[in-house]
Design a binder for these strands. Structure first.
Lengths: 148, 148
DNA sequence: TCACCAAATTAGGTTAGCCAAAAATGTTTA
DNA sequence: TAAACATTTTTGGCTAACCTAATTTGGTGA
């Protein structure tokens, strides 16, 4: 319940749990471990800490749930993830897999102001010079294909 | 001399030393500590490890230098730093201080492909629709001022 | 030149995060 | 319903990175 700071890694655990809850309805140690590329004992460690911080409801062998507070953090992170991925793919024309990797890191650091501005910029460009943007993406897509 | 992996934090130490070398000519434990916001003993720990990995020349009480290998890594990181900061400021119109903070994190993760594409995109937009870009920046600058 | 001060280093200790192996619990199936 | 299997948890131990306090070294001014 404390107001301790949250680490980048903890934010990643929260986001993973949030996605599992959305996709499968149930959050399992095993599945968290798989997505986070760690072993189950590491997940248990993390769950205990997050429980202490009031971000998840965790009691051993019981079902795992995010608290209201944990869910809010996860949602905020997830929405930055989506925003960044879209920007990388739709504006810069980065291959989705790479965009995903970059977003996955940057989402934990990006300033609110920067995130907001990226969103506004994307909208502005798409509205004000859609043709130029399409030209850029087409050019880059062609180059990327040639490289393969 | 080993081919061990380099951590994000080590990359930060290298970059800091690189900047100190450029700006002051000499690299001091005290100055690294100040810039990295850590205490001197932490710097010494880091120097020992980086020395082991062949990235700095370090012998106690002696002058500190980056090796060729260390310098190359630092330069690569630094150039991403510059690129990202410029993009955030000149294209998105983010306040320099915030742009700096974001760049400082993202530089350690950003994929080569993404970095390159950001550079190309900035050039493209500046050449193809400079007026639209100026309009966006002006608009945002006005909004930012109003908020203060 | 030597005593003093600043800088660097060592010693010893903390925390976050990870793991393998073993133990405990939960679930399923014969 | 009890054995077998799967999942979770505990135990004990590791590394990276940080710190404070104490010590050592290097340079400087009287």
């Amino acid at each position: 319940m404390s107001t301790l700071e949250i680490t980048k890694r903890e934010e990643e655990y929260l986001e993973t749990m949030y996605m599992l809850h959305r996709n499968k309805g149930i959050i399992r140690v095993k599945d968290i471990a798989k997505l986070m590329k760690v072993k189950p004992p590491s997940v248990v460690d993390a769950l205990k800490k997050l429980n202490e911080k009031g971000l998840v409801h965790y009691e051993k062998y019981d079902r795992i749930l995010l608290t209201e507070k944990g869910r809010k953090i996860a949602e905020a992170t997830y929405s930055k993830h989506v925003l960044l991925t879209e920007f990388f793919v739709e504006i810069l024309g980065i291959p989705p897999e790479i965009a995903e990797q970059d977003a996955c890191q940057f989402e934990h650091y990006v300033h609110e102001i920067t995130a907001e501005r990226i969103k506004e910029f994307a909208k502005f460009i798409q509205e004000q010079c859609p043709y130029v943007l399409k030209q850029f993406l087409k050019e880059k897509l062609t180059e990327d294909k040639r490289k393969r």
